[in-house]
Design a protein around this nucleic acid. Structure first.
Lengths: 203, 203
DNA sequence: CCTCATTGTTGTCAATGGCTACATCTTGCC
DNA sequence: GGCAAGATGTAGCCATTGACAACAATGAGG
């Protein structure tokens, strides 16, 4: 079965499994994801995944964890862009969030499904926490500059993330009534920021 | 196997299957949902579900459909309450949405997961559409009264629904950093409504 | 080199979803 | 009333799957 040119030890089967799993996930959904199929596709035996993921759920959790880590990296990058006004920065983060959602819809769904487990693996938990830890920083700066209404910055920030996540959830194929989220999100974020800003009356 | 006091024909196996499936879903998650287990629990043969749901996914879709229908009913009721100011009515709808989410978390997750299918069954599609058709009506009235900023009422309404749905998705066990969504949601909705209102400067 | 932990393999098992052929009940029609 | 036809439930089978256990190959540290 094994091509004989490939060494007995695969080398980095864990990484390859995650890669293949993500591909299969986006291609055919969680329900159709089979460990044995992954093994076949990678040319290894059907039991080898067990050395890296004790159970199928463990693999899914690992997948969700790297998902949140990538999400975190994107958000961090978007947040890092300094020197702009708050609205622009917040919109940037929201669009980064949206971009991830449009690029990896199945993975994002898996991430939030994994989060629903009764007890989550610590890595998943921390990855989840840190992934949503960026927005508050911006908002806090906004508050210190007197441009954002007072209140727990974490909660205020959550509003932005929630809007994007909710729009993604409610949309079908990244569209709402035929209009792309890429158009809708900035518009909606504009309304929300309008609500979070101190005394304004632009329309 | 069959107790002999129960007639050969169950009578309303379809309904019972849906009921049992929802219970099992909330109790143990989608992954652990087994048609055969449902059959055993209802005391019927393992093949009988096929008469009502050609495939397991069909059952899940039916479950999602009734979910959206119940969701729709709740939203409709909340919307129907007339004679109040717009903020109160919109908040009411949001809280109804939240109440559903807290009561049937697994079902709600299933609903939005089902929605991700490449092609959705027509009943599911229409149930989904109508479930989010109530908010726009209120907002439109608000616009006609000049209290809500102009724009497609459907999009504006979506903002409310998206916030709730997103908060639910991001929260863990109905809580965010230890604070119940029941406290957070009205607060956040307040901010968003502030952003959707015409000329205001409260705060 | 030689031990031993790591990683991969083969073989097996129970459970599952789905299929087919068959049994039983119900309804509509004469 | 009864009977034909469809609807609903059953029994048996199959391929696939996730998980487990016993064994094999590899490579790293002494």
């Amino acid at each position: 079965m094994k091509p004989a040119n490939r060494p007995y030890h695969h080398g980095n089967l864990r990484q390859e499994l995650l890669r293949a799993a993500e591909a299969a996930l986006e291609a055919r959904g969680v329900q159709q994801l089979s460990l044995r199929e992954l093994s076949r596709k990678l040319g290894v035996s059907h039991a080898s995944p067990q050395r890296h993921f004790a159970t199928k759920q463990d693999l899914l959790n690992a997948l969700a964890t790297v998902g949140f880590q990538r999400f975190d990296a994107i958000a961090a990058k978007a947040v890092a862009a300094r020197g702009q006004n708050f609205n622009a920065r917040l919109t940037k983060v929201a669009l980064a969030h949206l971009g991830f959602a449009l690029k990896h819809p199945a993975l994002l769904a898996l991430m939030f499904e994994a989060k629903r487990q009764r007890v989550l693996p610590p890595e998943l938990h921390t990855a989840l926490q840190t992934a949503f830890s960026h927005l508050p920083r911006i908002l806090q700066e906004g508050q210190e500059a007197g441009k954002i209404v007072p209140g727990d910055p974490y909660r205020l920030a959550l509003t932005i993330a929630a809007v994007v996540q909710g729009l993604v959830a409610i949309s079908v194929d990244g569209k709402i009534k035929g209009d792309s989220l890429k158009v809708i999100v900035p518009e909606v974020i504009g309304h929300v920021l309008n609500g979070l800003s101190t005394g304004k009356s632009k329309v």
